[in-house]
Each structure stands twice: as structure tokens, then as C-alpha cells.
Design a protein around this nucleic acid. Structure first.
Ligand SMILES: [Mn+2]
Ligand SMILES: [Mn+2]
Ligand SMILES: [Zn+2]
Ligand SMILES: [Zn+2]
Lengths: 146, 146
DNA sequence: ACTCTGAATTAGACAGAGTCCAGATTTTGG
DNA sequence: CCAAAATCTGGACTCTGTCTAATTCAGAGT
């Protein structure tokens, strides 16, 4: 899929067994056209930018439906809010603790060695790596000059 | 330190530049004697088990003070609450998504290869690995029999 | 022992994220 | 066009966590 338009959002939703309503298309379009990690709050603001279209309940219902249907994934790094991620490929994250910004790390080529055996009777659901970063000494010094 | 008693909690607090008050000692003792990952809520319940001793405000104030003084660390895996971890060694976690249980993974011997270069002007604050697990097919089958 | 003072604690109001519900609206399909 | 099913909505509610102003506490100095 080259470009994300509201039109191919409907196809995308159908392909994940989701009935494409107006509100669902808008929410999907907010996430997929930007390809960014957004909180429910941010999505609400985007979708209701021009004129109020979608209620808080619908935003949350829709995001939870998208999660359930595995159209998007969630990223838990901030104790105050969940980030929703349109990228469902296996990948990891840089998390800038100062700005709150999340950046993808392609899982291609990243390997983890030496993890212990799993406890008895459980299976792995996924492995997340979060690299917490913050502006470094150099960057701070440069800001001082400005 | 072999055993954790309320007495050596006072020393521990002092060694981290924290004035050891009654409430602070109780909260530290709850975490260190159990060596478990606990939420603020759970700590509140433990500390006030017999008779009410410590207010909600003090529990949160104290946990944030402990964090600031690097006596404990926090673990962000559950969207609904923060877990407080008395283990400040470098380590990772198994997270049982079904039960909510957290288990330590010693960082000794675990290595990550192939992470990309850091973005310009930032430094690493830490790298967290979270292995999400859940009861497996076998375990479920065994439960069926019971 | 008594007093003074800064540190710590407290109850309760408050804020933000997210869920729930019962009623209204929209869509479907016969 | 109509009834049934699906979806959406405002607003009440819950939960985690913070804030504030008033109170209590500890301990140093007398
Ligand atoms: Mn919070
Ligand atoms: Mn929550
Ligand atoms: Zn991502
Ligand atoms: Zn731990």
C-alpha cells in the first residue's frame, strides 16, 4: 500500500474483519497516515480538529477494537497513558524520557542472547526492548549557547 | 545484608540519604523483606494491614522519594499501575500478562546485538527487556483435566 | 522536662485516563 | 419502507496519582 487515503482505510478495516464506519475510518486514518505513536487523547484531538465528530467513548471503543483485531498494537512506556502504534511488524522502541517521543527500532538484525529458560507451562507472547534515552551532555551544552 | 529487619531498614534509608521515619521504614520493609514487585495500592494494603498507619499521600510521597534517591526502581508494564521494584541491580523482566505477575531476569549473561546508532545528541538512560508470557497450550490442557 | 522549629504526615479535594451504561442514531437487509 | 442489529453518545463513574493547607512529630537547645 503506497499512500494511505480514507478510501483504502475502509479496505484495510474490512481486511481485519472490522465494519468500516465513518468514525473508525477517521481514527484509522489518523494513525496510519501519520505512522506515529499516538495516545487516545491525541487521536481524539486530531479527529475532532475541525468540528466535533467523535466522542471519547467511541475513540476508546474503537482503539480497543483495533487492538483486538490486531490492526494496531499498544506500547506501554509512560505511566500516564498508552500509545497506539500502527506498526504491527515486530519492532522495538527508543523512548525519549524528556520529550515523551517514541521512535521505532527495526527488529531486523536485533538479537537477544542469553535469556533464561521460560518458567514451566508458559509461552512467550512477545519480547519488547525499550531503550530509554534523553538529551545528552553535549546537546545540553549547545542549548546553553542559544 | 543477610536478612531484612525493620532495624536494618533504618540503616539502609540513612545510607541513601533518607531520614528514616516510622512510615518510611514500614514501606521499605514491605518491599525489601518480600523482594517483590508491588504497586502503590498493594503497599498501602500491606502497611495498613493490622491498623491504619499510613495515608495514601505518604505512600506516594515516600515511593517517589525512594525513586529519587535511587533506593528502588519502577517498572512500567501494566497500563493501569506502576510497579515498584526493590531490586536496583541491572535486570530485566518476565511479565505474565494473564496474572500480572512480574519476575526478574538477571542481566548477567543477557546481551543485545544489532541495536542501531543512537539519534544525535542523546544518551542512553537504560535498556529494558520485557518478555511477555502467558499460560501455554499444555498448561491449559492440564487445567482442563483438573 | 519544656519549647521552638523545620520536617513529615494527613484528610480530603482535585485531575487525568479509561470504562460503563442507557438512550439515541445509523445502518442493514428483507 | 420498516424492523432489527450495530454503532455511537453524553455523562456518570472508577482508579491511579497529585496537591494543599492544616496538623503532628522529632529532636536540638535550654
Ligand atoms: Mn497515572
Ligand atoms: Mn488506566
Ligand atoms: Zn512502534
Ligand atoms: Zn525487577
Amino acid at each position: 500500500m503506497q499512500q494511505y487515503s480514507r478510501d483504502n482505510m475502509a479496505e484495510l478495516l474490512r481486511s481485519h474483519d472490522i465494519n468500516p464506519t465513518h468514525q473508525r475510518i477517521e481514527i484509522a486514518y489518523a494513525l496510519f497516515s501519520r505512522q506515529q505513536h499516538l495516545s487516545a487523547d491525541q487521536i481524539m484531538a486530531i479527529v475532532n480538529d475541525r468540528h466535533s465528530e467523535t466522542s471519547k467513548a467511541t475513540v476508546y471503543n474503537t482503539l480497543n477494537l483495533f487492538l483486538e483485531k490486531k490492526l494496531i498494537r499498544e506500547v506501554i512506556v509512560d505511566p500516564n497513558k498508552v500509545f497506539y502504534d500502527p506498526n504491527t511488524q515486530l519492532h522495538h522502541h527508543f523512548y525519549n524520557v524528556t520529550s515523551g517521543e517514541l521512535t521505532d527500532i527495526d527488529a531486523e538484525g536485533v538479537t537477544i542472547c542469553g535469556l533464561p529458560q521460560l518458567p514451566e507451562g508458559v509461552i512467550t507472547e512477545g519480547v519488547d526492548i525499550i531503550v530509554r534515552i534523553r538529551p545528552g551532555a553535549t546537546a545540553q551544552a549547545q542549548e546553553q549557547l542559544a
